[in-house]
Nucleic acid binder design. Structure first.
Lengths: 243, 243
DNA sequence: TAGTGGTCTAGACCACAAA
DNA sequence: TTGTGGTCTAGACCACTAA
C-alpha cells in the first residue's frame, strides 16, 4: 500500500500512518534521513496539512521521527529504550545494543496448557499449546532463555516449520497471518533455578531479569504467553520517565 | 492558574493542558468522573475545539483520561503501569498497588560526589551531594531501599529540613522550586549485597530489582541520582507494549 | 530571504451511545 | 433524537534555521 484510498472506511490519517511507518520500517527512509516537509506530503497524498501533522505527531510520539522547527523532520536511530515500548525481536534488540545475536532451539513440542498459562491466554486448561524453548546468545555467550507458549489452534503445524532459521514473527505472519497488536508484561528479579543456571552458564541463584508477557494478535486475542529469563549480569532495560 | 492568558507567550494548548491536568492532579476531577465535553471546554476557555482536542489527546496519550465516542471523556484510575511511565512517588506507587506505604530514614549526610555519580550528574567529582537513604515499607514489611544523591548546591540546607514526614517532592518544590521534568533509568536484576539483605530482611544473594535513575529538573539540569533496590520477591514492574 | 515546523481558527460532516 | 467524540478541510500567522 503506497496510495491513499479515499473510498476506504479506514481514516485517511490511519492509511497515511501505515504508508509512512512502512517507509521507515522497510528502510526506504533510513535513520538520519530528512523526510519530505509537511507541505510536500500534503500535496503528494492529497490530504490537508492538519492530517499530515496528525500522522507526523503520532510517529514523533512513538519515537520514529524527530521534528525540528526550521530544519525539517528526520528519521531517528532506533534506541534500546524501544525494548520497553514496543514488541521488538531479540535480533532487533541486540542490534540496537551493538551485540551480535545468536539463537539455539532447545525444545519444541505440543503440551496441554497448565492452569496459570491457560488463564493468561483466556482458554481452558488442557488446551493445546506449542512450546518453543530457545537459548539466545549475545556475542556467542548465553544471554537469555525464551519459553514461548503459542495457542496451537491459531497456528496449527507450526512446529513442522523451519523454526530455527526463520524469525518467529515472519513465520507467524507469512503462514498464519498473525501479527502482534499489543502485549502486557510483568518484570521481576528472581534467582536462577538450577537447570536454567546450567543452561545460561551462571551460578545457581544468580539473579535473572524475568519477564512474563501475554501478546495479543491484531484481532485483540491473547495468542502467546512468553517467559523471558535474562541474565542479570548481561541484560538491562532502559527507559525514560516523564515528570 | 485557572484562566488562559492570551497575552502570554506560552501557547494556549500548553496553558490549557496545565489547567486541565491540574484539575485531575488536585482531585477537582476524580477518577471515574466525566469531564465537560469538548464543546463546553471550548466555550469556557474561549479556544477553538481543535485546540481543546489537542490537549485532550495529550492527556489521553498519557493515560490520564479515557475518551469514549458517543459517551464522553472520563478521568481514569491511576494504574501500576505508571511506575514505568512517570516519576511517581513511593506513596503513589504503593497506593496504586493497594499496599500501605511506610518510610524510615536511615541516613542523611553530605558527601563528595564519587566519580560515577558525578559523571551521571555532569558535575566534577568531589562536588557536594546530599545523600538521603530511606527504607521503604509495604504493609509494614521492608519493600525497597532508596539512595538519593541530590546536588547540594541546588537545594542547600535540605538536610536540616523535615525529611521524614514531608514528601521529598513537596519539599524540593516548596523550598527550592525544584520540579522534575524527566528522568532516564536503567533496570537490572542483581543479587543483594550482605548489608542490604540484612536491612531488607532477605537472604544474602536474594534477587533485587535494581534501578538507577538520573532525574532532570525543569531547567533540564540533572539534579538527582537515585538508586532503588526493590525486593525481587515483593516488587514487580508492569507495562504495556505496542505491536 | 526562503523554507521548515508550531500554533490557532471556524466550520463541516460522520459514527456511536443513550434516552 | 440528542449529545458525544472522530475525522477532515482551507487558510492564516508565527518562530526558528540556514543560506
Amino acid at each position: 500500500m503506497t496510495q491513499i484510498n479515499r473510498l476506504s472506511k479506514t481514516p485517511l490519517y490511519h492509511q497515511l500512518y501505515e504508508i509512512l511507518n512502512g517507509k521507515i520500517r522497510h528502510g526506504e527512509w533510513k535513520p538520519g534521513d530528512m523526510i519530505p516537509p509537511e507541505s510536500k506530503l500534503s500535496e503528494e497524498f492529497e490530504v490537508s496539512r492538519v492530517t499530515v501533522r496528525q500522522v507526523l505527531d503520532m510517529l514523533a510520539n512513538e519515537g520514529f521521527i524527530l521534528r525540528e522547527r526550521g530544519r525539517g523532520t528526520f528519521v531517528t536511530q532506533p534506541k534500546v529504550e524501544q525494548a520497553l515500548m514496543r514488541i521488538v525481536s531479540f535480533t532487533e534488540d541486540m542490534n540496537q545494543r551493538g551485540i551480535l545475536p545468536g539463537t539455539r532451539a532447545l525444545e519444541t513440542r505440543l503440551i496441554p496448557a497448565p492452569a496459570d498459562i491457560a488463564s493468561e491466554l483466556q482458554v481452558q486448561p488442557g488446551e493445546e499449546l506449542a512450546l518453543i524453548v530457545r537459548l539466545r546468545l549475545g556475542d556467542g555467550e548465553p544471554m537469555s532463555l525464551e519459553e514461548s507458549y503459542l495457542l496451537h489452534k491459531t497456528c496449527p503445524g507450526i512446529l513442522e516449520q523451519d523454526i530455527v532459521s526463520t524469525p518467529m514473527r515472519r513465520l507467524l505472519d507469512r503462514e498464519y497471518g498473525i501479527r502482534w497488536l499489543r502485549a502486557r508484561q510483568v518484570i521481576r528479579a528472581i534467582p536462577a533455578p538450577r537447570h536454567l543456571a546450567r543452561i545460561l552458564g551462571i551460578q545457581p541463584n544468580a539473579s535473572l531479569l524475568f519477564i512474563e508477557r501475554v501478546s495479543y494478535s491484531t484481532t485483540n486475542t491473547p495468542t502467546e504467553f512468553l517467559r523471558l529469563y535474562h541474565r542479570g549480569d548481561r541484560y538491562a532495560l532502559y527507559n525514560e520517565l516523564k515528570g
